[in-house]
Design a protein around this nucleic acid. Structure first.
Length: 758
DNA sequence: AATATGTTCATTTTT
DNA sequence: TGAACATATT
């Protein structure tokens, strides 16, 4: 074994040599964190610690694989358990899921399955969606689960209409999941936390078994994850968490930054190691990152200490519009490759939201540059893949009604809405799975002739698949494709020629399956395969092929590239509109930007465009974050020209994003919008960009938006009379919160609700 | 069941 | 703007 301390700096050595007791590693970007973690594990093994008593928890498969690979290279050991939180929990629940009512073969629902189940639960629980959005309910349930709050822990009824609905739907949803023997992603964590919390003997056993625990990206853990980690390290607090509060970017998903900030409180006597030396980026890049992040107020001071020698200045460019931005960047990349200064794989283009990839793809395509797009349309989200997997899932778990519903009429067998409703009712009345209910319905001759035939056909296929399942997954898939003529079916359905990509995807699925078949040791290959598929993610598809990488700032975390472009650094994009009014969220956006900047090794270009959006002609203001950067030491340029020629352009456009150039177009566009608004009644006033524009448009359209103020008495046709508690926003987006005399408190968007003054 | 036509709604998403 | 979804029409 090589010397595991060789080439480490003092802080890294301190971390690697730590054996017993809690340790917090505050690791800035590019500080050699993975190296430290793997070397520390190697050190533990050297000290005689059993590999089976160590677990390492990460957030991504990629991170786990990377760690595994490096550890194997270092020690030849592959028995340390390394994997994602969700992977750990899935395995845990296969063993102990009974304690919360799950059988071993439970299905794992992804966001889409979960959404259909929640929609079903909305119906079941009699909640009306007229005034609520399904998305808000889904988010609400997710929030509860991330905090490990189970339905039976909710005592008080929800205060707002939304909270009330969330609670009702949550109860129904969990019941449905249990009946289906299924879990969603959040359940994996929540159930595990619940079991550990309520079964002290088991907890103590596992705490003793997992003597050494390592957690990566600790700043992004949510409460459920916190509880799991805590539960496993109470008696043996040999726990090492690694993270960087400045890179916490998943607050909106329930990540709680206080987990890392309070670590010292939870584990007295904690050893704290700071890894501040940066081995990744040039001093120029680090200075930009540092200056930016210092604007966050809720933050522990921390520096990025450069170790690399000076490179080129960070570029800050302003383009005319989004198209020019995409074209110029593609040109830059193309010429760098042509001049053999770099390879396509050295470049990454990062953006805030997925929809910004479109123009870039076009621009790269036009120049015949290969690229890989991370996120967006995912392999496992393709219709053909989901359909086929639903069959497999139903074989593995016959009580999985969500999968049943997905494929019962795929391909079409004359089992439409009506038949489905019949079967569903039978299933509910008798409390049996729909698959069983379908058989019963045939036996009782409840179905129409057509449906009867289709149902028999389906069940024959299903039974054949079950039979094949004792052979291999590949055999099942082949049987399925053969019997259903699936590919032809899909082509016919879309009334297109058979799509090559569909066939390619199916082939890829089969090849994935065959790999699992090969290593099938314990006879549950199918379950293993389904789990692997469910817990895989976009970033897993990242390859080292020679391609330019396009992805969101979120998915870029943990990665690094020689040359990084961050685009669309504009007001309402980065920071995103939805974080405008909340300082915590604004700081998270700043951290996101920080994460993006610190991905770059050699060069970094930040850009904004003056026009972007629908039709490409909406004015876009530069992000306020751009004003926080050390602009004196950067290279400022207008996108079309050479460096320096328009150095002050950004400042100009800053204060007058509605000024000069746009002024002549502005009233005309506005007039059009306003006219359209008048014509189509004020209820459907189009969404507009800025507050001032909205007020102006509303005035033009004659919308009476501002006569409602706090304290006024109003009348609503459904809720009766009430008093306005507060108002928020302007123009057609103006919201009023009303305390109705009957007791309800509700909020309305003025332009959309039938409120009138009383 | 297929097709046309209207309506709505646009975050991020490690799993 | 356009995709995804819902509703109407044949």
């Amino acid at each position: 074994m090589q010397d595991i301390f060789e080439g480490l700096n003092d802080a890294q050595r301190a971390a690697v040599s730590h054996v017993d007791g809690p340790m917090l590693t505050l690791a800035g970007p590019g500080s050699g964190k993975t190296r430290v973690v793997t070397h520390r594990i190697a050190h533990l093994l050297q000290q005689g610690v059993s590999p089976f008593s160590i677990i390492a928890l990460t957030f991504t498969n990629k991170a786990a694989q990377e760690m595994k690979k490096r550890l194997e290279r270092l020690t030849d050991d592959s028995s340390v358990w390394m994997g994602t939180f969700h992977g750990y929990c899935a395995r845990f629940l296969r063993h102990y899921g009974r304690l919360v009512g799950l059988s071993e073969n439970f299905s794992i629902y992804d966001a889409d399955d979960s959404k259909s189940a929640i929609e079903q639960s909305v119906l079941d629980s009699g909640v009306s969606l007229t005034h609520l959005k399904i998305g808000d309910i889904i988010r609400g349930i997710g929030k509860l689960k991330n905090s490990a709050i189970t339905p039976d822990m909710m005592e008080e009824p929800g205060r707002s209409a939304l909270d009330h609905a969330i609670q009702k739907v949550y109860v129904a949803y969990q019941k449905q999941l249990l009946v289906n023997n299924a879990v969603d992603f959040d359940d994996l964590l929540m159930h595990t936390a619940t079991i550990l919390r309520t079964n002290e003997d088991l907890r103590a056993d596992l705490d003793a078994k997992h003597r050494y625990i390592l957690v990566d990206e600790y700043q992004d853990t949510n409460l459920a994850q916190y509880l799991i980690v805590r539960g496993l390290s109470l008696d043996h607090p040999n726990i090492n968490v690694t993270g960087d509060p400045d890179q916490s970017i998943y607050g909106w998903r329930g990540a709680d930054i206080s987990n890392i900030l309070n670590f010292e409180r939870d584990y007295p006597g904690v050893k704290i190691v700071r890894l501040e030396q940066n081995y990744r980026s040039t001093p120029e890049i680090l200075s930009v990152a540092d200056t930016l992040i210092e604007n966050n107020r809720r933050r522990k001071a921390k520096r990025l200490i450069p170790t690399r020698s000076s490179g080129t200045k960070v570029a800050l460019r302003t383009y005319i519009d989004a198209r020019q931005e995409a074209d110029m960047i593609a040109d830059q990349i193309a010429s760098a490759i042509l001049e053999e200064k770099a390879n396509a794989r050295d470049f990454a283009i990062l953006y805030r939201t997925n929809n910004q990839s479109r123009l870039l793809e076009q621009a790269l395509l036009k120049r015949k540059l290969n690229y890989q797009l991370i996120g967006g349309y995912r392999f496992y989200h393709r219709q053909e893949i989901r359909d086929l997997l639903a069959y497999l899932r139903l074989v593995n778990n016959p009580t999985d009604d969500i999968s049943f519903k997905r494929i019962i009429n795929v391909p079409a067998r004359g089992l439409g809405e009506k038949t489905l409703a019949q079967v569903n009712e039978l299933a509910r009345n008798r409390e049996i799975p729909m698959l069983v209910a379908l058989r019963a319905a045939i036996d009782r001759g409840m179905l129409s002739r057509k449906a009867q035939t289709g149902a028999k056909q389906f069940l024959t296929l299903y039974d054949q698949l079950v039979e094949e399942s004792s052979n291999s997954i590949v055999a099942m898939l082949q049987k399925l494709l053969q019997e259903t003529k699936y590919i032809e079916y899909l082509a016919a359905k879309k009334s297109e020629a058979p799509d090559e990509s569909v066939e390619g995807n199916v082939q890829e699925l089969i090849s994935d399956a065959s790999e699992v078949d090969l290593v099938n040791e314990d006879g549950n290959a199918l379950q293993q395969f389904l789990e692997q598929v469910s817990l895989s993610s976009d970033t897993d598809s990242l390859t080292s092929d020679d391609r330019v990488t396009l992805m969101t700032l979120h998915s870029a975390k943990g990665l690094e590239f020689d040359h990084v472009y961050i685009i669309a650094i504009e007001q309402d994009i980065l920071p995103h509109v939805r974080s405008r009014h909340n300082n915590d969220q604004l700081e998270e956006e700043r951290r996101l930007f920080f994460v993006g900047i610190t991905r770059a090794r050699e060069t970094l270009q930040l850009s904004n465009a003056m026009q972007r959006g629908f039709g490409g002609n909406q004015m876009a203001a530069p992000s306020p974050f751009l004003m926080e950067l050390p602009r004196a030491e950067m290279s400022l340029a207008d996108g079309g020209d050479e460096e320096g020629s328009m150095a002050s352009d950004l400042d100009d456009s800053w204060g007058e994003s509605w000024g000069d150039g746009s002024e002549s177009d502005f009233p005309k566009a506005l007039e059009r919008k306003a006219r359209r608004a008048r014509e189509s009644s004020w209820k459907s006033l189009p969404k507009l960009q800025s507050g001032s524009e909205m007020i102006a448009a509303a005035t033009l359209a004659g919308v009476p938006v501002d006569e409602f103020e706090a304290g006024m008495r109003v009348r609503h046709p459904a809720y009766g009379q009430g008093t306005i508690l507060s108002t928020e926003g302007f123009g057609p987006k103006r919201m009023v919160r009303i305390d109705f005399d009957q007791g309800d408190r509700k909020s309305f968007q003025l332009s959309k609700s039938p409120l009138e003054l009383a």
